[in-house]
Nucleic acid binder design. Structure first.
Lengths: 229, 229
DNA sequence: TCGCAAATTTAGTCGCGACTAAATTTTTTA
DNA sequence: TAAAAAATTTAGTCGCGACTAAATTTGCGA
């Protein structure tokens, strides 16, 4: 079994691959908060283990084996997040950090028991899809909240759990999966946007924050969109 | 926070102190399945950290700080064992190995939530007392099953969880906390003993096995004992 | 009490996964 | 398109916690 370090690298590469086509050494190093040299070292090791393909100076890519391993870790992570929230009431913004450690030490058997307990769930508390045991993962076509225009209304489907401070902030603002948001105002030039959460408070989100939230247009919006055509 | 290694050493020293007055390097090394030289190295480190007192060539002893730390790890371990058994139905003989890994990675907050969930329990599934958060631990005056005589009857209170194979064996034989055992026959010269479990099957236990089970004499036995006097 | 065996410690090594500093390659820009 | 900047890799080091082999200390039995 791979070390916790190897697991973390694979997970990071997987997550970066979701947004960027090619994963650079620097991006990986930043994501894991380590030096670029350390990242290079580990990339070479992963390449030796046939878990990634590495074209020196041009980035890294998961192999089939590497992706499978990454998805196993991610499955652990998300099952644990949901389990901690459901079974023990661990607050939404804390489950990520806790799962980050536990994901590396649970057995296959415990993984199965947790999945069973939760009724084989499809989503973790932040809306992230939980990979199946066979390595299949949903990839719903959500759009970023940042890409909405003023006047549009949407339902939050997923919130990035990468930054604990952001997460806490989102929770405080009510920006959680299944919440409704209306874009009240849109500043030009990729500026911040102002949203109303539910039918209550209004808040301003900058680009980073708004890009960490994925939504689907709400039913009425979709109809309007169709009508326009 | 101490590394998982440090935590394991402290736990091991604590457990050895329960039976032996003085903990030797060799005993520690055997308990942790490492070389004696490795044990010496870590002992020196622990001494530097003021977690143990070390008189070279004469053994090692936990300091107050070291004992406190050991008890925290043991509290984690036993809470997790019980939690896995209660919440997820992890079988009796498997909880130990699972807890051995998780105990090092849970937060204070999660510890509290698990204790809460379980209603601040006093015992883990093997009958081991769970230390309180303040570092107090019950030390009931149980006697070893091996010290009983033929004809005596007792209730199992605690079973050592140190050896997974033994544990599995105990479970198969019904030798679990709260079970009743009658000593049917006692071989001389520290030989094996034959016991009836509940009012059912009979089994033979050698010294090592019998010393891994702690009991209290059953009520009727105590009366008989008093009457003799 | 002397000598030997067992226990313990010392000395030196290794793999892992991090680091910094320096060299190299790629990309940008003037 | 050439030079500067940025990204990446190489080279060498470090702490941790394991190891083996060798030296030392202790304690037991003759």
């Amino acid at each position: 079994m791979p070390s916790a370090s190897v697991q973390n690298y694979l997970k990071a590469i997987y997550q970066l691959q979701e947004t960027c086509e090619t994963v650079t050494t620097t991006a990986l190093a930043q994501h894991l908060d380590i030096s670029a040299a350390s990242a290079t070292n580990m990339i070479k090791k992963l390449a030796r283990l046939k878990l990634v393909r590495h074209s020196p100076y041009h980035g890294v890519e998961l192999s089939t084996a590497g992706e499978k391993m990454a998805l196993e870790v991610i499955r652990h992570h998300r099952l644990i997040e949901l389990f901690l929230a459901e079974a023990l009431g661990v607050p939404w913004e804390a489950v990520h950090a806790e799962a980050e450690k536990i994901e590396h030490v649970i057995s296959e058997d415990l993984e199965d028991r947790i999945a069973d307990f939760l009724g084989d769930p499809g989503r973790d508390p932040h809306g992230d899809p939980i990979p199946t045991k066979t390595g299949f993962v949903e990839r719903p076509a959500y759009q970023s909240l940042f890409d909405l225009n003023a006047g549009q209304s949407a339902v939050i489907r997923r919130v990035s759990d990468q930054n604990p401070d952001h997460l806490k902030h989102f929770f405080k603002l009510g920006l959680i999966p299944d919440a409704t948001v209306d874009v009240v105002q849109r500043e030009p030039f990729q500026g911040p946007l102002r949203v109303r959460v539910g039918s209550g408070s209004e808040h301003t989100l900058d680009e980073t924050l708004a890009r960490s939230i994925w939504v689907t247009l709400s039913a009425t919006q979709k109809k309007l969109f169709k009508a326009k055509k």
